[in-house]
């Protein structure tokens, strides 16, 4: 009898492991939704690229409420999805409690470090990419005043802002940076009308280059800047093509690559912390046919020089998260 149970148990484990090896990967999008033209959409594009190239299929979930985070993670893990990728720091705390319950499932989380033996944490050095576009903004500005529009006043956005201001000041120490946040509710990530208003208001204060780090709200910023005849800087995805010749550049954050790589790795996903920085092309500035007329040769030379110096450690871009302060305003 006990031998029988043993065999059955072993068969069960075998069935589970083969199931896991053949399992489809899954991705969970944060509350912003997968079509936010920015962060979540970049993740979706990475997953889609994987599906197109490999012919595989993946599960995807969009959540509606905070209580669903744990629900979604557990249900996907129990359904045998592997690996499970989630976008956004808000999953961190929940993943910390859920991951130990499913030791055979691999998880990947973007923008947050979760120290569990089956979790891969992918973080980006947004301050370095923002530093580069800050330099470009300062060089392109004629008024000496540039703008920053964030979504909500959260640590992640301060990290963007702090890197940007450092880049601006590196080129022009006397430059003024106007900073605005869109709102205090999650609606702030998808409010292009408010984004337009803020951009127009910043223009009236003299800003002639505006960097938007605000998800869907940024589309309003880019639109208003194009209408007002000033320049804008996109974020996360390459947004240069949205208003050709009007978008100075985009601070690209290759969320798509990290999702794609996690899906390619599959069950062999390597747990630990992965830092996506300038050197690994996890962040950077976008240069394509839509903005090549805006970026002069000397601008490009200056930024490429800075890129090399940041990679070699000669220029240290301060990370807001290190001490919750920014050396420049």
């Amino acid at each position: 009898m006990s031998l029988m149970t043993h065999f059955l148990g072993a068969a069960g484990v075998l069935a589970l492991t083969t199931g896991a090896a053949l399992a489809d990967p899954a991705i969970i999008f944060d509350l912003g939704g997968k079509f936010d033209k920015s962060f979540n959409e970049a993740a979706f594009n990475g997953a889609k690229r994987w599906a197109d190239e490999t012919g595989g299929s993946f599960k995807e979930l969009e959540m509606q409420s905070e209580a669903q985070r744990e629900q979604a993670l557990r249900r996907l893990a129990e359904a045998g999805s592997n690996p499970i990728v989630m976008t956004g720091f808000a999953f961190g705390d929940v993943l910390n409690t859920v991951a130990p319950d499913y030791p055979d499932t691999k998880f990947a989380i973007i923008d947050m470090v979760v120290e569990q033996p089956n979790v891969k944490s992918v973080v980006f050095t947004e301050e370095q990419g923002s530093y580069l576009v800050g330099m470009l903004a300062a060089m392109a500005s004629e008024t000496g005043t540039v703008g920053f529009i964030g979504g909500m006043d959260i640590p992640l956005i301060r990290k963007f802002a702090c890197g940007y201001v450092q880049g601006v000041k590196a080129v022009n120490p006397d430059a003024t940076v106007i900073q605005n946040m869109t709102g205090t509710t999650p609606a702030a990530w998808n409010d292009p009308v408010k984004g337009s208003e803020l951009a127009i208001s910043q223009k009236s204060q003299g800003a002639d280059v505006i960097y938007a780090a605000a998800g869907g709200t940024g589309l309003g910023v880019l639109q208003a800047a194009a209408d007002q005849g000033i320049l804008s800087i996109g974020v996360d995805s390459n947004q240069n093509h949205l208003f050709p010749g009007k978008v100075l550049t985009s601070m690209v954050k290759r969320v798509d690559n990290s999702v794609y790589e996690a899906f390619i790795d599959g069950d062999a996903l390597e747990p630990g912390i992965t830092v996506m920085d300038l050197a690994s092309e996890g962040v950077g500035y976008a240069l394509d046919e839509n903005n090549e007329a805006l970026i002069t040769a000397e601008m490009k030379a200056a930024v490429d020089d800075a890129t090399a110096k940041i990679a070699s450690g000669e220029i240290a871009v301060h990370d807001y998260m290190a001490d919750n302060t920014c050396p420049v305003e």
Binding site: F89, A90, G92, D93, D111, M112, M152, D153, I154, P155, L156, R158, T184, T185, M321, A322, N324
Partner: peptide, 21 residues
């Protein structure tokens, strides 16, 4: 909400946590 945003971002957030919580 603004008050909560301020408190979670600046006062109540554990050091080095990315999450405003």
């Amino acid at each position: 909400l603004s008050l909560l945003n301020y408190l979670l971002g600046n006062v109540m957030r554990p050091a080095r946590s990315m999450d405003p919580a």
